[in-house]
Amino acid sequence: MTGKTARQCSAWVLPFLVAINLALSAGCAGKAATARHAASNTGSNCYAKALPTAGEGGLAWGSTLNIARQKSLNSCIRYAGRSGGTPSTCQVVLSECKN
């Protein structure tokens, strides 16, 4: 009798554990993505993009055009320096506000 009970138990334990694992990981992934998306758009109507002559640039959002431009320049300087580019050549190449 013990052999049959062990086989019956193992037949449902593995699928149950897999289902719990999938449910937990799917639930956490959906909540994190939603929170990140909502936080990035709150109060940010304007965006700006700054690029150096070499290296990576920066894109930033802000409540005003000036804030977005300044943030993108700061990001450009930081990322251009990290990527082996030229931080001193960063310039804002695009800036707009949404309606």
Rank of each mutant, 00 (worst) to 15 (best):
Gly84Leu: 12
Asn66Tyr: 08
Gly85Ser: 04
Ser75Met: 15
Ala80Met: 02
Leu73Gln: 01
Ser88Glu: 15
Leu65Ala: 07
Ser72Arg: 02
Ala68Trp: 06
Trp61Gln: 05
Asn74Phe: 12
Ile67Gly: 11
Trp61Asp: 01
Ala68Glu: 03
Gln70Trp: 11
Gly84Cys: 13
Gly84Ala: 11
Pro52Gln: 06
Val92Met: 14
Ala60Ser: 06
Gln70Ala: 03
Thr86Arg: 13
Trp61Arg: 06
Thr89Ala: 09
Gly55Ile: 04
Pro52Lys: 01
Gly62Asp: 03
Ile67Pro: 07
Thr86Pro: 00
Gly57Arg: 01
Gly62Cys: 10
Asn74Val: 03
Gln91Ser: 09
Ala80Ile: 08
Ser63Asn: 13
Asn66Ile: 00
Ser95Cys: 10
Val92Ile: 14
Ser75Thr: 12
Pro87Ile: 15
Ser83Lys: 12
Ser95His: 15
Gly62Lys: 05
Asn66Pro: 01
Gly57Asn: 03
Thr89Glu: 02
Arg78Lys: 11
Gln70Arg: 13
Glu96Trp: 06
Gly84His: 09
Pro87Val: 08
Gly57Tyr: 03
Ala60Gln: 05
Ser83Gly: 06
Ser75Gly: 01
Gly58Glu: 04
Ala54Trp: 05
Ser63His: 06
Gly84Ser: 15
Ser75Val: 07
Glu56Tyr: 02
Arg69Thr: 01
Gly84Val: 14
Tyr79Ile: 11
Ser63Ile: 10
Ser72Gln: 00
Ser63Asp: 13
Thr86Val: 15
Glu56Asp: 13
Gly81Ser: 11
Ala54Glu: 06
Cys90Gln: 04
Thr86Trp: 14
Thr64Lys: 09
Asn66Ala: 14
Gly81Asn: 10
Thr89Leu: 10
Lys71Ile: 12
Gly84Pro: 09
Thr64Gly: 03
Thr89Val: 09
Gly81Leu: 05
Gly62Pro: 02
Gly81Gln: 15
Tyr79Asp: 05
Ala80Cys: 07
Cys90His: 04
Leu73Thr: 11
Glu96His: 13
Cys76Ser: 03
Gly57Cys: 04
Arg82Phe: 14
Leu65Ser: 12
Trp61Pro: 04
Gly85Trp: 05
Ile67Gln: 14
Leu59Glu: 13
Ala60Asn: 09
Pro52Tyr: 07
Leu73Arg: 03
Gly81Trp: 09
Thr53Gly: 12
